[in-house]
Design a protein around this nucleic acid. Structure first.
Length: 297
RNA sequence: GGGUAGGUGCCGGAGUGGUCAAUCGGACAAGACUGUAAAUCUUGCGCCUUCGGGCUACGGGGGUUCGAAUCCCUCCCUACCCA
C-alpha cells in the first residue's frame, strides 16, 4: 500500500535581517540535512546584482544546490505573486527529490505568501491605469476606492498612494478587492537569526566595506549601462546611492540605509511567534532533527 | 589687536516683539503591510501630566516691555577677512 509520506511537505525556513548570516547557516544546514537552498530575497533573485545584494558565490555555495538566485533580469517587473509561484514550484520540486528545502531570505512579503499559502487576487499590474491614477490626489483615489469597495476602503492606509492605486486597480477588475485567503501547503519549521542591534550594525559596516572593495561601483555601472536606471536598480540599497552620481559619504550612507532596512525587516519577524530564534547552530541541528523525525514517523 | 558673519532642540536649518515647545529636513523610536516590499506608508520625538494643563528652554548674565528666540548692554565661543 502506497502511503503518502508527510515528509513530502516539510520545509525549513530561515529568516532574519540582512547581514545576519542566514546564507551561511542555510548552506551548512543544507549540507548536513541533504537539502537545497531556495532564495527568499526580493533582490538576490535578480541577475547581475551579485555584489550589492550579497548573492552567494560559488565558494559560499559549497556544492549545495541553490535555487532562484539571480534568475530575473533587473529590468523586469517582478512581484511577490510571481515569486510565490516560482517558489512553490521549486520547493515542491526539492521535496519530490526527497530533499529538504531551506527557504532562506529576508523578504517577509515573499516568504509569508509561500509558507502561509496566500491567495493573491489575480490582477496583474496595469501600467496605463497606474499612470492615470498616479496623477490623482490621495483624497480622490480614496473616494474612488470607497465607491468601488467600501470594506477595503475602511482599512486601507489612506495616505499610501501606492497601496491606494493598487487597491483601485484590483477593485476595477473584480468590482471589489477580494479578501486574501490563506491555504498553507507546507509543514514549516521557521528558524530565525537575530544578532542584535549592535552586532548587526558592525556586520553591516563590514559588509558594506567589503562590497565596495569587491567593486560595487563597477557592478552598478555595468548594470546601468546594460539596462539603464530601472526601478529595481533605483530601489535597491547599494545601487540607488549611485543614481545621482555617487552619494557622499557613500559607504556610510549605504550602511545607514541597510541598517534602517534591517529594522523594518525585523518588524515582521518580531511578531511571528512561530520563529525559533537561534542562539547557535547546534540548536538549529537539534530542531531540524526533531522536525524531521516527527514527520518521518 | 581690528573688521565682518554667526551662536536655536540629537544634527542640519527656519523663525527676527505676542497665535513658539518653536515651520521643515535628517537621525532615532514604535508600527502598518492584498501582484513595486531592500519598495511604500503612519505615528511619536524637551520634561511632567488626573490629558484640562503645568514646568524648563533658542550661548552665559543683565536690561527694556504687559509680553523677548526675536530689541538694548555686557561677557564667552565659532568661522572668515585685515593686522
Amino acid at each position: 500500500m502506497k502511503r503518502k509520506r508527510k515528509t513530502d511537505k516539510k520545509l525549513v525556513v530561515i529568516v532574519g535581517p540582512t547581514a545576519s548570516g542566514k546564507t551561511g547557516l542555510a548552506v551548512k544546514l543544507a549540507k548536513k540535512f541533504k537539502g537545497e537552498v531556495v532564495c527568499a530575497d526580493s533582490r538576490q533573485i535578480y541577475s547581475g546584482m551579485k555584489i550589492g545584494t550579497a548573492q552567494p558565490d560559488k565558494r559560499e555555495k559549497a556544492g549545495v544546490p541553490h535555487r532562484l538566485f539571480g534568475i530575473i533580469p533587473p529590468k523586469k517587473v517582478f512581484s511577490a505573486a510571481a515569486y510565490q509561484k516560482m517558489a512553490l514550484k521549486t520547493v515542491k520540486d526539492i521535496q519530490k527529490q526527497g530533499k529538504m528545502p531551506f527557504l532562506t531570505g529576508g523578504s517577509a512579503f515573499y516568504i509569508y505568501p509561500v509558507i502561509e499559502g496566500w491567495q493573491f487576487p489575480k490582477s496583474k499590474a496595469d501600467p496605463v491605469l497606474r499612470k492615470k491614477l498616479e496623477s490623482m490626489s490621495l483624497a480622490r483615489l480614496f473616494q474612488m476606492l470607497r465607491g468601488l469597495d467600501k470594506k477595503r476602503a475602511e482599512n486601507i492606509d489612506k495616505k499610501n498612494k501606492r497601496r491606494l492605486i493598487r487597491a483601485v486597480e484590483i477593485a476595477k477588475r473584480f468590482g471589489k478587492v477580494p479578501e486574501i485567503t490563506k491555504k498553507p501547503v507546507f509543514d514549516c519549521l521557521i528558524l530565525g537569526i537575530d544578532p542584535g542591534k549592535d552586532e548587526l550594525k558592525k556586520r553591516i559596516e563590514k559588509r558594506t566595506e567589503r562590497m565596495l572593495k569587491q567593486g560595487l561601483e563597477k557592478e552598478v555601472k555595468s548594470l546601468v549601462k546594460k539596462y539603464g536606471w530601472t526601478d529595481v536598480l533605483k530601489n535597491t540599497i547599494g545601487y540607488a546611492e549611485f543614481a545621482q552620481g555617487p552619494a557622499f559619504p557613500l559607504q556610510e550612507l549605504i550602511a545607514l540605509h541597510t541598517e534602517q532596512f534591517a529594522k523594518r525587516q525585523m518588524v515582521w519577524f518580531k511578531k511571528d511567534k512561530r520563529i525559533h530564534w537561534l542562539k547557535n547552530q547546534k540548536q538549529a541541528n537539534t530542531l531540524i532533527k526533531k522536525f524531521t523525525e516527527i514527520f518521518s514517523l
